[in-house]
Nucleic acid binder design. Structure first.
Lengths: 109, 109
DNA sequence: CATTTGTGCAACTATTTGGTTGCGCATCTG
DNA sequence: CAGATGCGCAACCAAATAGTTGCACAAATG
């Protein structure tokens, strides 16, 4: 169906649009790879909640998981992030144009 | 607590995490500045829905609005996007490290 | 083998979100 | 001035989200 690139991009941004998931990503980046249990230790929310967030990140392909014996390790896969970055950069190209229009808007007659 | 910077960043990403809003941003960038009514013309959803999305974008400071007589013009303000871009770039710096860990994770004994 | 440890699934609740309709008010324009 | 145009509430609804609890199952360990 409408599995357009736009939808996928929005999914990546939506996955990033949550403080908990943002924190998970930074923690995973720092540690390399962690289990959901390790990620939930000392945290205010339940392991189950963490797992759900990780599933969102996996669905957006921002994170990969790998079963290793008894435990499942999660790690950031930066490839999808590049897409998002490319989009923001593309917008940045329209920067000057947009700023020019903004100016003329404010100074409009 | 980590109240301000992380939360705001997540807000920007959350605002971008919706196909409708993504489309609004690109349309606004292309046109420079448009009213909510103009943005809703020919669209499937109501003007009110568009207004709500625009309010989300304004709250995330991705878009500014300027009253001009009877109508209100909306335009993209790219300054906030730079923050998001900076974050993704910061992650990109951990790229190799993360990829290295990913590799060792996959190849782990 | 019995126990601990980590994961997976399911049901349930509360809040947020995306959307609608209806209406009143302000502002241009003939 | 009278009508058209555009905006701003507010109430309401359905679906998605974030979180919980409870329990069962697989795998490492004494």
């Amino acid at each position: 169906m409408s599995n357009t690139p736009e939808r996928e991009l929005a999914g990546v941004f939506a996955a990033l649009g949550d403080t908990t998931r943002l924190a998970l990503i930074t923690r995973l980046l720092a540690a390399g790879a962690l289990t959901a249990t390790a990620l939930s230790e000392g945290q205010a929310i339940t392991r189950q909640a963490i797992v759900k967030h990780l599933q969102v990140l996996v669905a957006a392909r921002l994170v990969v998981h790998e079963r290793h014996g008894k435990e499942v390790l999660y790690a950031v896969d930066p490839r999808r992030l590049e897409e998002a970055r490319a989009f923001l950069t593309a917008i940045a190209e329209g920067w000057d144009k947009a700023l020019g229009r903004l100016k003329s808007l404010v100074e409009a007659p």
